[in-house]
Structures are given as C-alpha cells and as structure tokens.
C-alpha cells in the first residue's frame, strides 16, 4: 500500500515536471514564431523593393503602364502635405485637451474624456474616411487634399490628447509651486513653465501619432483619392504613398508591383524612423526631467 502511494505520487510529480519543461519550449516557440513573421515580412520587402529604389523613384512622376521607370515623387510629397494638414487640425485640439485634462479637469470629466479618446482610437480608420467624405467631399463636390488631411487630423486627436496629458502630468509639482509662489497666475505657469518643461514628451507623442497616421490608407481612399500628377491646390485630389502602394499592388502589371515594393520600403522606413526618433526623444526627455 505504502509503495503504491509513493509510486503514484512519483508519477504525478514526474508528469508535472515534464509538463513544466514542455511549456517553456511551447511558449518560446510562440515568441520565435512572431519574430519569424516579422523577419519574413522585412526580408521580402527589402529583397523585392531594393532593385526599384533609385534616385528616379524619389524625383519622377509615375509613368503610364508599359513604360519603364518612373517614381513616386508626387506621392511622397503628397504624404507630407497630408500629414502637415493633419497636424494643423490634430495637434492644437489634442494638445489643448491634454493640458486641460492634466491641469484643470475634475476626476469625472477627465475620466470621461480619456475613455472617449481610447474608444475613438479603436474606431476603424475607414469610418473616419466616411465621416470626412460626408462633411468635406460632398459639400466641396470633389475629392481633395483638405478632406484627406481632415480625416487624418481627426484620427490624431485622441492619441495626442492621451500622450500630451501623460507628459504634462509628469512635470514635477515643485516647478508649478515655484511659479505660483512668485505670484504668477496659474495660466502663465502653465504656458511658460509646465508646457515648455513637457515639450520633449509632447513632441514624442506627436511623432508617434504621425508614424501611425502616415501609413493609413483606408481613410484616404475616398478623401485624398490619389492623383497621378502634381496637384496644384489643396482642393484637388492628392497622391499619397500608402494609396499608391495599394493601387500598384492590386494592379496586374509586374512593373507596378516592383514600384509598390519600393514604395513600401520608403513608407516603412519613414514609419520606423519617426518611431525611433520618438524613442530617442522620450529617453532624453525623461533623463532631463529627472535632472540627470
């Protein structure tokens, strides 16, 4: 009897130990699988795209089907134009809301706005495209750079609100108290002391948001619409890099496919570079805030 209990205990123990060991491998396999996918995507991107990536790609307009060469100069410029327009809309509102939430809002209101911002972040980007279509494109009776910038700008608002609130809140309370003790009104303390102190962080938030918005295609499909030439005013359709990659990718022409890969490299480098730059900023900013 004694032996029986002992051996069954021994069996369970061994089974538990094996199970424990096996899970280490299973779990690390999950992580490796994810890395493999990333690696696979990046290598394909560079191998397929690098051959079409030449100076011409950055300076020329797209060529018609059948003609070799051509580039995406207008699309690259278009993406920057759209981002610029988006910043004009998203940054003031997001920053203002972030500062208010950090400095003035009572708990309930702040919670409500934060919650709404997070919910807004989760709304599919194509819905913003439809919204921009109904309020911009229909009244203007034309696809336009303005409506594309409007769609991207709205998408930026919730993210910038959350990040700038976070960084404004991180400014040490002593800085504010020092200002207030000198008899400076609270709003001057905010404008002249708190915001400048948080500026590095705020910039990080803006850049992370830009990196996210730069690759958005869905909200531009029926707002910016795309354009094979240079546009001459903001009320005209405008080309954008992600849109061009999309159009070329689903086209039946090999030449265009190669251009799509090249466009994708430029797009991904842009996104990674802005992200990396933002990381650099946030590290420097937190060092600076903690006084090291």
């Amino acid at each position: 009897m004694k032996v029986l209990i002992h051996s069954s205990f021994e069996r369970t123990r061994r089974r538990r130990a094996i199970w424990d060991r096996a899970m280490v491998y299973v779990l690390s396999l999950c992580a490796i699988g994810v890395l493999f996918i990333l690696f696979n995507i990046l290598t394909h991107l560079f191998i397929q795209g690098i051959t079409s990536l030449n100076p011409e790609f950055f300076t020329n307009l797209p060529k018609p089907v059948g003609e070799k060469g051509g580039g995406m100069a207008n699309a690259i410029a278009g993406t920057f134009t759209l981002l610029g327009l988006a910043v004009c809309l998203g940054v003031p509102i997001g920053l203002g809301a972030g500062i208010y939430l950090s400095e003035y809002a009572d708990l309930k209101f702040a919670h409500a706005v934060r919650f709404m911002s997070d919910v807004m972040n989760g709304i599919p980007s194509i819905v913003y495209g439809i919204f921009a279509y109904t309020v911009c494109v229909l009244p203007m009776k034309s696809f336009s750079a303005l409506s594309g910038g409007f769609a991207l700008g709205i998408m930026m608002i919730p993210m910038i609100t959350r990040t700038s609130e976070q960084f404004v809140r991180m400014v040490p309370v002593q800085l504010r108290e020092a200002g207030l003790a000198l008899g400076v009104p609270k709003w001057r303390v905010i404008v002249d002391i708190v915001v400048p102190a948080a500026l590095g962080g705020i910039m990080t938030g803006i850049m992370v948001t830009l990196a996210r918005v730069a690759g958005e295609t869905a909200p531009l499909l029926f707002t910016a619409f795309g354009n094979r030439y240079w546009q001459h005013s903001l009320a005209q359709p405008i080309a954008a890099l992600p849109l061009q990659v999309f159009t070329y990718a689903i086209s039946p022409f090999d030449d265009w496919h190669r251009q799509a890969w090249a466009g994708a490299i430029v797009l991904i480098l842009m996104v990674f570079m802005i992200n990396g730059w933002a990381q650099f900023y946030v590290v420097r900013h937190s060092r600076w805030l903690s006084g090291k």
Binding site: I37, A214, A249, A260, L267, I268
Partner: peptide, 15 residues
Amino acid sequence: VDLLAAIPSVIYGLW
C-alpha cells in the same frame, strides 16, 4: 513586437 505593430496595414496587404 512594437515594430511589427507599427507596420502599416497596406504593407501587410502587399506581403
């Protein structure tokens, strides 16, 4: 993993 999350969806589509 954050890099993977930052890849625009149009590039996932291309791939």
